[in-house]
């Protein structure tokens, strides 16, 4: 990153609708504190992997991560003020995107590798043993590589994660729902806070106004790629479950069922 020679104003001033909500600095501090701890797979990994053993390790880790994700989401400012139905809906839509963004963050300094956990690291080639997973590994590695190119900062990473969570369902200030307008306004305001925080984080990097604009665009454009790879991953996991390659249970089963055609 260029040296911070100039103190340039942020690209966009914090939105007025958020006054007197929380400053972007405070918001980022809160979501940084919400970050889940590092977890370990804690399995005796026998290599070479078989299709079943790799899928089992991946799903075991995912199930552990999901539990921590719920605790993380509850610490995102404004999340628990949403209705329980909205909280459930948001988490069920975005859980795999959140897991994948976390994976990309852990892997950003390890080109060609996916760091699922400190004790579970896979190279691209190790995905050969699972039918259809190499395509997904390639997409994950490509997105990770992009974050590496952009030199993604921790403050930006936590903002993107919060953005994925709150952006899982479309918020619309003008829609009227059965529960009334205030519910949707709350979600919109929370999302505005995340945008303000991300803009603030970018403004600290000493970039020109144009570079700040581009960076905001580059980071948010990656969210659609994350959504795409999450959809692919969801289909893949569903296929593996239907073929009985892997037993999916507990919280992971609930979250997977919400995204498959068999769900009500």
């Amino acid at each position: 990153l260029p040296p911070m020679e100039l103190s340039l104003p942020p690209l966009v001033q914090p939105s007025q609708s958020n006054q007197p909500f929380m400053s972007p600095e405070e918001f980022i501090s809160r979501i940084m504190e919400a970050e889940p701890p590092e977890i370990y797979l804690m399995e005796d990994l026998k290599k070479p992997f078989t299709q079943a053993s790799m899928m089992m390790s991946l799903t075991n880790l995912a199930d552990k991560e999901l539990v921590l994700m719920i605790s993380w989401a509850k610490k995102i400012p404004g999340f628990v003020e949403l209705s329980l139905a909205d909280q459930i809906h948001l988490l069920k839509c975005c859980w795999l995107e959140i897991l994948m963004l976390g994976l990309m963050w852990r892997s950003v300094d390890h080109p060609g590798k996916l760091i699922f956990s400190p004790d579970f690291k896979l190279s691209r080639e190790e995905g050969q043993c699972v039918e259809g997973i190499m395509e997904i590994f390639d997409m994950l590695l490509a997105a990770t590589s992009r974050f590496r190119e952009l030199k993604l900062q921790r403050e930006e990473y936590v903002c993107l994660k919060a953005m994925i969570l709150l952006n899982s369902i479309l918020c619309n200030d003008n829609c009227s729902t059965a529960a009334g307008l205030p519910k949707k306004n709350k979600l919109c305001k929370n999302l505005d806070s995340v945008i303000d925080a991300l803009v603030w984080a970018i403004s600290k990097l000493g970039l020109s106004t144009q570079q700040q604009t581009l960076r905001l665009g580059h980071l948010t454009m990656l969210l659609s790629h994350i959504r795409h790879v999450s959809n692919k991953g969801m289909d893949h996991l569903s296929t593996m479950k239907k073929k009985n390659v892997v037993l999916v249970y507990n919280l992971l089963l609930e979250m997977l069922d919400a995204n498959t055609s068999s769900s009500s």
Binding site: S71, K74, L84, Q87, I88, L91, N250, L251, E254, M255
Partner: peptide, 13 residues
Amino acid sequence: NTKLLQLLTTKPE
């Protein structure tokens, strides 16, 4: 939604 609901509605330790 049993497990998800349980995690959302229990207080953090």
